[in-house]
Design a binder for these strands. Sequence first.
RNA 1: GCCAGCAUAGCUCAGUUGGCCAGAGCAGCUGAUUUGUAAUCAGCUGGUCGGGGGUUCGAAUCCCUCUGCUGGCUCCA
Length: 650
Amino acid sequence: MSANTIQITFPDGSVRSYPAGVTGLDIARSISEGLAREVLAVKVNDEVWDATRPIEQDAQIRLLTWRDPEGKATFWHSSAHLMAEALETLFPGVKFGVGPAIEQGFYYDVDLGGRQLTEADIRALEQKMTELAQRKASYVRKPVAKAEAIAYFKEKGDPYKLELLEDLPDGQITFYTQGNFTDLCRGPHIPHTGFIKAVKLTNIAGAYWRGDEHNPMLTRIYGISFPSQKELDAYLQWLEEAKKRDHRKLGKELELFTFSEQVGMGLPLWLPKGTIIREQLQAFLHEVQVAQGYQFVVTPHIANKKLYVISGHYEKYGESSFQPMKTPQPGEEFMLKPMNCPHHIEIYRSAPRSYRDLPIRIAEFGTVYRYEQSGELHGLTRVRGFTQDDAHLFCRPDQVKEEFEKVIDLVLLVLNTLHFKDFVAQISLRDQHDHSKYIGCEESWQQAEQAIVDAVQEKQLPAVVEYGEAAFYGPKLDFMVRDALGRKWQLGTIQVDYNLPERFQLEYVGADNQKHRPVMIHRAPFGSLERFVALLIEHCAGNFPLWLAPVQAIVLPITDKVLDYARELVAEGKKAGLRITLDERNEKIGKKIRDAETQKIPYMWIVGEKEMQQHHIALRKHMKGDIGNLPVADVINKLNTEIAEKYFEL
RNA sequence: GCCAGCAUAGCUCAGUUGGCCAGAGCAGCUGAUUUGUAAUCAGCUGGUCGGGGGUUCGAAUCCCUCUGCUGGCUCCA
């Protein structure tokens, strides 16, 4: 075999020979012209390359198109460059930060020198991007020496790029040029701008340079692009649909919760209907936890400041939380509790504990208050007063693994019951470079981090590791769920903690009659009731499973000749434990049905003279329509079965 | 907290370049209608246009400021 022939291995395992220097695009063309027209990039031995970059050695490759996540990312990253070119054309002198692809689209951080972008500017940018795209300018990769790169951006006057260059090693720097725009960029990029057929700049936001609030704030322009107008339209339609699921909108429409400026920002007021959902969830969790050996406690909403000085919370959050409240007693200070753990620790300490008693599982639906930054508040997902389905497990070191796994099972039970299928378990570890924000010794942290990693492996959870996301006293396993718009939120959390037992000098007497230190596990399967309900609303679009629905059934009499029968049915339903109401308004049945559908009430009991005579119900299901004419007893039975099963349907 | 945008009746929204007593639909109340699977008809009630200040003969509309909300950034025990 000649020296300038290389072996290319395809994803299906087949191998073909190509001349050295072949590009992904060449390979695609050798398969089919159609494929060549679609190829955006190529994955060469686990690294994504430009489709136009020569491959010099044997390699495993996969051709990437719009259908591949990496293909989309490349497409969007190239779109960011295109936007940068448009920006530079329209607003000469603009300085560039970074412009990556994100999960849905891309952004570029720019310094516009104080200029504020208007709606018209945005439209003009979109138009310019489309115009530039039509030129089908190639994205040209060029390795450059560091000195050359520095010279280029000095000449151009781009301080942010120069700062980025400082951290890059010489010999690994590349420039990409398309049209009249050259950027410092690792790549890869799509072959040319012509692939970008539809562009939408979605919003503008401020963003600190390099994510540091001490740095100047740049203007971040978000956008998304597609290979066809049709796909952009579909995306925009999806956005519209997602907005209808917004828990803030549904919460108002379905009268679940509200906020009052008078009460204070971030302090939710649960309305009667929302409270039913909350209490049903609470009852569910109460039941499964008691079955698993948890003991429920109740503790006050405030505690002496000293408690948080011991726990370390005061040092860490004292300045940025609700401030201590004074009492008539000089020098005495109390704080709203931001956590339940110190209270539970004091319960543990209220009696001597034997190794035989462990694990002790102390649970509470505890309401806590945290002074979240005003800009952070968001509906029910980020609030200043919320209720955790909290518990603290005090166990012997040898019990940590088993207890941790049991908690994982509990979280999974909760997520499964509410049909949260696409969660991700996030292993939140310390910042690898900065241990100063954490309390406790190195050994404790390593033990705790290892315990979590082991447990996740054992349970084979879909997991990602995030450094720097740990709590200050220990690592966490967080269960992340997406909202209607795809934003990730932490729901359940499990934390292994060797530090607070140390700080509070917790003890138990071992089999050896010596004192030992227990290990704590903090855990909350819902996280907070508020956030959980918010995500649940978005997840089911307000169409709650019957066991949670605030109103489970409504009786709709066709005329008021059957009002008495309707009232009788309400009484029967209530007697059977159903949350049932009656629509006795003087309206036509179509109107009553429409209103019940709008209110997303799961079952409508429609009754006229015919039903009255047979003691029947014409049963109608929300979003499904007429189910049929059934005896009352059958209907009640059916509903109660559905409730008992916690049946969930999307 | 930072950047940007928004704020009109309980809800969803109109309100042209600052100019007649600020409008509509839904909801609510009255009345008529007695209805068979997603909106019956008519009448009425309801807003000092988020608060405060300013410019102007005149402000929902322009400016300042405060409050709240929205999207991001930072933060998230």
